[in-house]
Amino acid sequence: MSGTAAVVEKPKTYWVAPISYPAPASSGKTGLWRTERPVIHLEKCVKCLYCWLYCPEDTILRREDDYVYVDYDYCKGCGICAAVCPTNAIDMVPEGGES
């Protein structure tokens, strides 16, 4: 053996595709973006589910009986739920001050 033979390495993984998986908080706790918080008055709610349908963030959630509640960790406070509610059961309340 002359010792000059090239050492051929076994091909390894050349490239790992950067795959992401759907998960909450891909951009953090977006509830922190909020300047106004939707507050639902269930006594006025007729369970039409429009707020749930139109919320862009999936942060209106449905209970077993189809009354709705807000996931404040991620709700961005856009106010669409309040705007589409036919019975005005949702108030937008300013954030800050005493909690």
Binding site: A25, S26, S27, K29, T30, P56, T59, D73, C78, G79
Partner: peptide, 17 residues
Amino acid sequence: RYGSPGNAACPGCPETM
């Protein structure tokens, strides 16, 4: 869950809707 909350879209985004 239909969407993925905590994403980077602006508030009121029609695309996430």
